[in-house]
Amino acid sequence: AITFRFEGQEKAKKFYEKLMRQNLEATIHIHGDEVHVTVH
């Protein structure tokens, strides 16, 4: 698994949606202002 870190939720959401379109499995974790997107 690879984890990407984002400042702010907007960028993270766009990235997450892009992964979903590519049929990749990903989970999102929100830590205050920092958002972690883990790709499995």
Rank of each mutant, 00 (worst) to 15 (best):
R5V: 15
H36L: 13
A12S: 02
E25P: 13
D33Q: 09
K13S: 06
H31T: 08
H40Q: 08
E7K: 15
F6I: 04
F4K: 02
E34K: 07
T38Q: 06
Q22L: 15
E25A: 14
I2K: 07
G32A: 07
E10G: 06
D33R: 10
H40R: 11
R21M: 11
A12H: 02
A1K: 12
K13A: 08
I2N: 03
L19Y: 03
V39P: 06
K11W: 09
Y16M: 09
A26P: 04
K13V: 12
I2E: 03
R5P: 02
R21V: 05
T38A: 04
M20Q: 07
R5M: 08
E17D: 11
H40A: 08
V35Y: 13
I30D: 05
M20W: 05
E34G: 05
K14M: 12
L19V: 07
E34I: 12
I28W: 08
H40I: 11
M20V: 10
A1H: 13
T3A: 04
T27K: 05
M20T: 06
H40P: 05
K18C: 15
A26S: 03
I2M: 10
T3S: 05
F15H: 01
Q9A: 13
H29C: 10
Q22Y: 14
V35W: 15
F4W: 08
L24D: 02
E7M: 13
D33W: 08
K18D: 08
A12T: 01
I2A: 04
I2P: 03
V37L: 04
A12D: 01
I30K: 06
K14R: 12
L24K: 07
A12Y: 03
E10Q: 07
Q9D: 07
H36D: 03
H29P: 00
I28M: 10
I30Y: 12
H40Y: 14
Q22S: 08
T27Q: 06
V35I: 11
T38C: 04
T3Q: 04
H31L: 11
I30W: 12
E34D: 05
G8Q: 12
K13R: 14
G8F: 10
I30G: 03
A1T: 14
K18Y: 15
V37F: 03
V37H: 00
T38R: 07
K13H: 10
E7A: 13
E7T: 14
I28E: 00
E17S: 06
F6H: 01
E7N: 13
D33E: 10
E7W: 14
H40G: 07
I30T: 07
F6E: 01
R5N: 03
F4G: 02
G8E: 14
H31E: 12
T27G: 03
G32H: 05
E34T: 09
V37K: 00
D33C: 08
M20K: 11
V37D: 00
Q9S: 10
K18P: 00
F15D: 00
H40S: 08
Q22M: 15
L24A: 04
E7Q: 13
L24Y: 12
I2H: 06
H36P: 00
V35L: 04
Q9H: 13
H31N: 10
T38V: 13
L19G: 00
K18T: 10
T38S: 05
G32F: 06
K14H: 08
H40N: 07
G32E: 06
L24W: 10
K14D: 09
D33P: 06
G32T: 04
